[in-house]
Each structure stands twice: as structure tokens, then as C-alpha cells.
Design a protein around this nucleic acid. Structure first.
Length: 827
DNA sequence: AGCACGCCGACT
DNA sequence: GTCGGCGTGCTC
């Protein structure tokens, strides 16, 4: 690290600023002892004492020759690495994350480094299971540690230090760790429970035509079993090697006992597989597969975009073979000697995809996600560091790996909200972080999705990103139909019945006649989202939030949907005394009411936050719907949560126009993805699935562009011609938690902060939540959301503003409120 | 994050 | 008179 003049003694003293794995915003300066001078370097782990007794692994951030003026620096105790475990790009990335997501750099370090790489005095060490080691090869001190661990299987690092009578034992532990005989204790928590299904396949013995013929002859005598076999033949034609037990039993109409005999006879092989109905089942990646002409063309177009764009969005419908395309691109990049990061959301990282890519890339690919153990994490980290892996397939946290020269980052299913970390800081979005990481490496990013997020779509359409599409032609017969119906037109023809077009009413009638079910989607709770005085224009608003109050018929009160504030409804205008107060807009309550009037015999239920608030009500409604005790389900986005209904053939979106603003659009988008699957499912069952979108302005560009675009290929579209392209304004939501032990002080502080946001930034402020304040021990915490226009106010402006707001908080003693958490949402 | 220091209530 | 509650502030 240091330039030494040959032959001349170097008596300079160096000081290292280090990052500690703690929620502290500063770096701390330590003195480099002469003995360690040659070893200390930026990015290496060092052992330092912090405070009276605590010892941590820190990362060297900066080295200087200037001693601190105001205090005497402590010495670095030890250096753990021969080569830095963290490179300069990573430190830049950490800095960016801590500034963009407003957290401490130590928190980023905490999230980034596997815990095996950051021993602290409280870390617990355990013996490796079935560890084989030669006692003769251990040093005396190592031997002592092992002896202690044989007696007591779990020891704190500080206990070991006490045992040996020395302060720093990290180096010793690292040596034992490297020998593979101890590891870091971890609580194994299997939080993630994947959905499993039993699949069946015919024993490969019967692939031979003559064996198959023989099988048919044998089964002649047992007709029931033959039926199962025939059903299997039928099903496997569409989906080879993925015949689900459930489907097979249904198709054959046989009991599971009959199937069981077939399995015992080894005619069928049963296997249980993790399924994810959200993700495509791609074709197998045989070592020599070739891209189709379509895939090849799209791949070329992506490469062309990469010549002048850093990011390209690939819009590819489900099972259009996106994975195959990625694999070929990845292969090209690694052949040029660069590394590739392939990100997938946690739930999409199934055993199949991992196995398939492992089979294809062999030892060159590393897997990194939250379900692998910490030792394995450290191993992957080191292999990326040593460039043993040129590809890493990973979830969110894989963006933190020590890549030295990335050539490409693939972010698949880029719209997935699980890329955003919510709970502990750093609250980063892996997709956006990946884009910044790529920028540091001068690498390219490919975002892939069948249903791109609006912000990515926006960036693609405005030319910031490249855009490529991978389409797949479907047979038209069983595709669900999507139809946009004009409310405006029906209004002028006077064929509207309340909020329902004649088209929707007719479709509902037909579906009910066929004993099929209907889901109606209206993303507004309550009866009427707004009251307005026709005389003076007064609108009852929440006393805390910048929103109008929603009238709820069930309570007879006006509710604020952001903070929960309630007040009695008004029949006389408080501003002018007029009684001419009009209800504007409609919510699920009103849809339910009006629908019952049109279909008096139909069994209608409503599913929104209000009807599912109590403990089991959500499941009860779902069960009732599944058991066909309900004909029509009216609901908000919540209906998309448990959707998996066979008898649903019609989905109606009552008013698409009201969904086009954030954050509604986000919910609508998500729901629509799920609704489209229900539609598709209905189609597969040889019923015509249909989605009807009602809209005032049928030419609305968002409906035309986004919906049409995203779902082309999934639906047969009956759309009007497309008009010019305009997006609704995109917003950023910034969440701020404010904390204080005194509720009154907290209120006042939050109000002041909200007022400042409104006045200074012109932002909309939602919350602070009054009755819904959370209590943590003896603190009150309020959450408020600041809604700012994405194009209008930059995040840095907000952050600067926050800093000054924080200052006024701290200087004003009486109104001291602490901002405990800030969260930047990309939408 | 931890941990010490410090200032107020119920105990041998 | 002291033990212990947690509120506040510091850690290179």
C-alpha cells in the first residue's frame, strides 16, 4: 500500500478511517501500528476495539497521515486479510446506498458482509459437524480453543478471549474457520415455505414403443388403471413431464388409490416439486440448445441497444424463453472474461432453475440467497473475490458480492416488489442498486419481465432505457378475451345501469346463467370517496392528511383512509350552510349495493380491508367463494391475494380511469397480473375467460399502451386503435417515522414537519397517523408519507430538506421529535 | 448498536 | 442509606 524508498527507513505514522458494522454515521480513525503498516489497506478487515470492551471487525475505508486533532486514536489490533475482501466499487456502492436510502454506512456493511466475515465479541462460535482435523497440526492456542469447544459446543468470541487471556482472537478463529473445523453459530430459520405439488411421470421404461404396447395389454384387465394411463397420455401431450397428480385424478375421474397401485407397480414415478405459479417454466437448457429465430433477433436488438444505453428492458411474455436468451447472453459476456450477476426474486429461485443453470454453467456459477447457510455465503463471497465464479445467480443481497469486473447484470422479474428490502435498514431496492452497481463497473443491465413495472416501462418509453420485446404466438382458441368498454359512449346512449355498462351487465347475466363466478374489481373502499357542496364547492377533508374523507355507509361516518381519522358525516355544509351536498365517486360498498339492485337473486359479497379486518374473515370469504356460496365477489386489490378459482370466468374492472394514478396503479397492476392468470386458467378449462375493463376514456393512453402491451399474447385483445402516448405523473413515496415518548409533543412535531413539507417542497403529505400511532416500549411512533412528483423534486432535494428539518427539531427543545426512519420508495 | 454515567423511586 | 429503573450521550 505504501511507497517505500528503497533502503530508507519509513518512520511515517498512518491513520486508518474504518467502517464499523453499527448504526453509526461516522467512520472512526485508528492508528496503524508500525508492525501492521505493510498490511493495512483499504477494503481489508481489521480488528479494532470500540468503546470500553467491545471488539469488532471493521473495514478500512481510508488511509491518511494526518493524526486526529481532538482525540488520541486507538491502535488497530490486527489485520485479518491478505487481500482486501471489499473492493473500491463496493465501497462506492455502500456510500451510494447509505446516501440514497438515508441510512448509516455501517448498516450497509452489516447487510453486505456475510456474518462469517464479521466476527464481533458477541458472535458465537460452534464446532463444525463431523469436523475431521489433525490435532498435531493445531497451534497450542488453537488446541485450547478446540478443547473448550469439545466440552461446550457453543462459545462466545469474548469467552474464548477470556479463556486465552488475550484480547484479540479473531486471527486464531479465522485460521480455524479456514481449516473448516469451526463455524459461526446461526439460528436456522426456514421462513420461506415454498408451495409443493406432486407430479407424475411415466417410467422411462415405457418410452420404448413395444414396452408401452405391452403395458396397454397388461392394463386391459384393470380398466380403471387404464383410464388413468389414458388420462396421463392426454395431459402429457400439452405439458410433458409436468402432469400434476391433482389434474390427473380430475381428468381420469379415478381415486387416488388406483393411482397408488400404479405407483407401487412402478409404472408411474411420483415426485414432489416446488411450484411457483407466478414464474414461467422454461424449456430445459440442454448443453447445445440453440436460440429460436425470434430469440436470436431479440438478443441482437438488445446488444444493439447496449451500444448506447446502459439499461435495456426486455418485455417477454411468460414462457417465451427469456431464460434461454439470458443464458446465451451471459455466456458471451463470460467468454469475454467478465463477470455476470443474474438476479431473481427470492421466491423465483426454485430448485429447478438453480439445477438447470448449474448443469449448464457447471463450476462457473455461484448461488447466493437468504436460504443458504452463512458458511456457504462466505464461501461464495470468497469465490467471487478470487474470480472462481464468473456467474452468480442470486436474490436481492447478491448485489453486495465482491465483483471485480461485471460485464452484465440481469434483473429478471424486475417488477417484483420483493426486490425492495423493507424491514431493517438499508432499505434498498436491488433493481435500482444493480443499475448503480453496473454504472460503477461500466457494465450493462438487462431488466426482464412479462409485466414490467411502470417506472421501468416509463424509462424505456422515454428513451432512457433500451426496449426489446420477445413475443410468442399463441393459438387463439382458448385465450381469455380482454375487452375495453367505453363508459362515455354508453352514458350518451343512456345504456348505463348505475356504474355498469350494458356489456358488463350482459356478461354477468350470462356467467350467472352458466353457474360461473364473477369478480368485480374496484380499488376504492367505502361508499363514496368524496362529498362536495354544490353551492360553495366545500369538500370535507382529513384534518391531518391532504385527502378528502370517504363516506362509509356501514358506519355512517366519514373516514380518512390514510390515518384512520373518523368524523360524523355532514348533511349541512359547514362552510356555507347549504344542504345541497353531492356524493362524488363510488367505492366497493356502493358497487355492492347497486349490483344487488340489478341482480336481486345473486349472492354478492364484498372483500376489502373493511370486511377482512377481523381475524378469519379473509379466509372465510375465500372459502365461501371457492365453495360457490358466492356468485359475485366485489373487491379492492385484496381480491388478488388469494385468487385461484376454477369457476371464475369473468372479471370486471369497474373503472380503470380511477386506477391510473399512483399509488393505485401499482395495486391495479399487481391485481391485473393475477387476474389475468385466473382468466388464463378459465381458458384452459375450455371455458372462455373474459376480462372487461370499463373506462370513461377508452382511448386513455395508459390503458391502451400499458395494459395492451403487457398482456398482449396472454389475451385476445379487442382494443381500439392506439393514440399518442402520455403517462400519468409518477410519484415517489417517502416514508418518515417520527418518534417521541410524549404523544402530544410527537403530534406537534409531526404536524410541523408535515407543514414544512407542504410549504417548502409543495409535497402532498399523507398521515401522520393519529389514532394509529405505534407504540414501541414507552415510545410513540408516527408514520407519515410524503408524496412528491418524480419529475419535479429530486431525492437529494428532499434529503437536504430533511436534514434541515431535523436540525430545527433538535434545536427546538420543547418540540423535540426524532426521525427514526426514512424510506425512499422508487415509485 | 452497546455500554457507562446519571438522576429519581422502593427496598435490606 | 443503596439497588436499580431507563434516559442521554459517546464511542476513534
Amino acid at each position: 500500500m505504501l511507497e517505500l524508498n528503497e533502503g530508507k527507513r519509513d518512520d511515517r505514522t498512518f491513520f486508518a478511517d474504518v467502517i464499523l458494522p453499527l448504526a453509526i454515521s461516522k467512520t472512526y480513525t485508528y492508528r496503524v501500528p508500525q508492525a501492521l503498516k505493510a498490511q493495512v489497506a483499504v477494503g481489508k478487515r481489521v480488528v479494532v476495539q470500540f468503546g470500553k470492551s467491545r471488539i469488532y471487525t471493521a473495514i478500512v475505508y481510508h488511509i491518511s497521515e494526518t493524526p486526529p486533532q481532538l482525540y488520541e486514536a486507538k491502535y488497530i489490533m490486527d489485520v485479518l486479510d491478505e487481500i482486501p475482501v471489499v473492493n473500491a466499487h463496493q465501497i462506492s456502492l455502500w456510500e451510494w446506498i447509505s446516501s440514497y436510502y438515508m441510512c448509516h454506512i455501517g448498516e450497509v456493511m452489516q447487510a453486505a458482509l456475510p456474518s462469517a466475515l464479521k466476527l464481533a465479541s458477541e458472535t458465537r462460535v460452534v464446532l463444525m459437524k463431523d469436523a475431521v482435523y489433525d490435532k498435531g497440526e493445531l497451534s497450542d492456542k488453537e488446541f485450547l480453543i478446540m478443547d473448550a469447544l469439545e466440552i461446550q459446543p457453543e462459545l462466545k468470541v469474548s469467552d474464548i478471549a477470556k479463556l486465552l487471556g488475550q484480547k484479540s482472537v479473531f486471527r486464531l478463529l479465522k485460521s480455524l474457520f479456514d481449516k473448516g473445523i469451526i463455524h459461526i453459530s446461526e439460528e436456522i430459520a426456514e421462513r420461506f415455505k415454498p408451495k409443493q405439488l406432486t407430479f407424475l411421470r411415466l417410467n422411462s421404461y415405457y418410452d420404448e414403443p413395444e414396452n408401452k404396447r405391452a403395458l396397454f395389454e397388461i392394463l386391459e384387465k384393470s380398466p380403471k388403471q387404464l383410464e388413468v394411463l389414458l388420462a396421463y397420455m392426454k395431459l402429457s401431450r400439452n405439458a410433458p413431464s409436468s402432469v400434476a397428480k391433482k389434474d390427473l385424478l380430475e381428468e381420469s375421474g379415478c381415486s387416488s388409490a388406483i393411482l397408488k397401485t400404479l405407483i407401487t407397480k412402478e409404472i408411474f414415478i411420483s415426485e414432489s416439486r416446488v411450484v411457483s405459479r407466478l414464474y414461467e417454466q422454461d424449456q430445459a437448457l440442454s448443453p447445445e440448445f440453440r436460440l429460436s429465430d425470434d430469440q436470436q433477433a431479440v438478443s441482437e436488438s438488445i446488444k444493439t441497444h447496449f451500444q448506447d444505453k446502459d439499461v435495456t428492458l426486455l418485455h417477454g411474455v411468460t414462457s417465451s424463453g427469456k431464460t434461454q436468451l439470458y443464458v446465451k447472453l451471459i455466456e458471451e459476456v463470460i467468454q469475454s472474461g467478465k463477470q455476470v450477476l443474474y438476479l431473481l426474486p427470492e421466491i423465483a429461485l426454485t430448485a429447478q432453475i438453480i439445477e438447470r443453470l448449474r448443469a449448464y454453467f457447471g463450476k462457473k456459477i455461484g448461488i447466493y440467497h437468504s436460504r443458504i447457510g452463512d458458511n456457504e455465503r462466505a464461501e461464495v463471497w470468497n469465490k467471487v473475490l478470487n474470480k472462481e465464479y464468473s456467474v452468480v445467480l442470486g436474490a436481492r443481497s447478491a448485489v453486495f458480492l465482491p465483483f471485480s469486473e461485471l460485464g452484465l447484470i440481469v434483473v429478471d422479474e424486475e417488477h417484483e416488489s420483493s426486490y425492495k428490502q423493507y424491514d431493517p435498514a438499508p432499505r434498498y431496492h436491488a433493481r435500482d442498486t444493480a443499475i448503480y452497481l453496473a454504472h460503477l463497473h461500466r457494465s450493462k443491465v438487462l431488466l426482464g419481465s412479462a409485466t414490467p413495472s411502470l417506472e421501468s416501462y416509463y424509462n424505456a418509453k422515454t428513451g432512457k432505457y433500451g426496449f426489446a420485446e420477445l413475443k410468442q404466438r399463441y393459438g387463439d382458441s382458448n385465450l381469455p378475451v380482454i375487452q375495453v368498454v367505453s363508459i362515455a359512449e354508453e352514458t350518451s346512449r343512456k345504456t348505463m345501469q348505475s356504474h355498469f355498462t350494458s356489456v358488463l351487465v350482459a356478461e354477468i347475466k350470462q356467467a350467472l346463467g352458466r353457474k360461473e363466478q364473477v369478480i368485480l374489481f374496484q380499488n376504492r373502499r367505502g361508499y363514496t370517496p368524496m362529498l362536495i357542496c354544490k353551492t360553495c364547492g366545500y369538500i370535507p377533508q382529513c384534518i391531518h392528511c391532504d385527502v378528502s374523507l370517504t363516506f362509509h355507509k356501514s358506519t355512517g361516518k366519514l373516514h380518512c383512509h390514510y390515518c384512520g381519522y373518523k368524523q360524523d358525516t355532514v348533511s349541512v355544509c359547514p362552510a356555507c350552510g347549504s344542504t345541497h351536498i353531492e356524493q362524488k365517486g363510488f367505492g366497493t360498498e356502493k358497487i355492492e349495493d347497486d349490483l344487488q339492485f340489478i341482480f336481486p337473486d345473486a349472492r354478492i359479497s364484498r372483500m376489502d380491508l373493511d370486511t377482512t379486518r377481523s381475524k378469519n374473515s379473509f379466509q372465510r370469504i375465500l372459502n365461501d367463494f371457492e365453495d360457490q356460496k358466492i356468485d359475485i365477489l366485489v373487491g379492492t386489490q385484496i381480491v388478488a391475494k388469494g385468487l385461484d378459482f376454477d369457476k371464475v370466468t369473468l372479471i370486471g374492472i369497474i373503472n380503470a380511469d380511477s386506477l391510473l394514478n399512483y399509488p393505485d396503479f401499482r395495486a391495479f397492476e399487481k391485481s391485473f397480473q393475477l387476474l389475468s392468470q385466473v382468466g388464463g386458467r378459465a381458458g384452459r378449462r375450455e371455458r372462455q375467460g373474459k376480462v372487461i375493463i370499463q373506462s370513461h376514456n377508452i382511448h386513455h393512453r395508459v390503458i391502451d399502451q400499458v395494459i395492451h402491451h403487457n398482456y398482449e399474447g396472454l389475451f385476445r385483445t379487442e382494443m381500439t386503435e392506439r393514440k399518442s402516448f402520455h403517462y400519468p405523473p409518477l410519484y415517489r413515496m417517502i416514508r418518515i417515522d417520527v418518534k417521541n415518548k410524549d404523544q402530544f409533543v410527537l403530534n406537534e412535531a409531526a404536524q410541523r414537519l408535515a407543514a414544512e413539507f407542504r410549504n417548502v417542497l409543495g409535497a402532498r403529505v399523507l398521515g401522520p397517523e393519529d389514532p394509529l400511532v405505534t407504540r414501541v416500549r414507552n415510545f410513540f411512533i408516527k408514520t407519515m408519507y410524503i408524496k412528491i412528483e418524480r419529475e419535479g423534486i429530486s431525492v437529494s432535494k428532499v434529503k437536504n430538506f430533511l436534514k434541515s428539518a431535523l436540525l430545527t427539531f433538535d434545536t427546538d427543545k420543547r418540540n423535540k421529535g426524532t426521525i427514526v426512519q426514512v424510506d425512499v420508495d422508487p415509485y
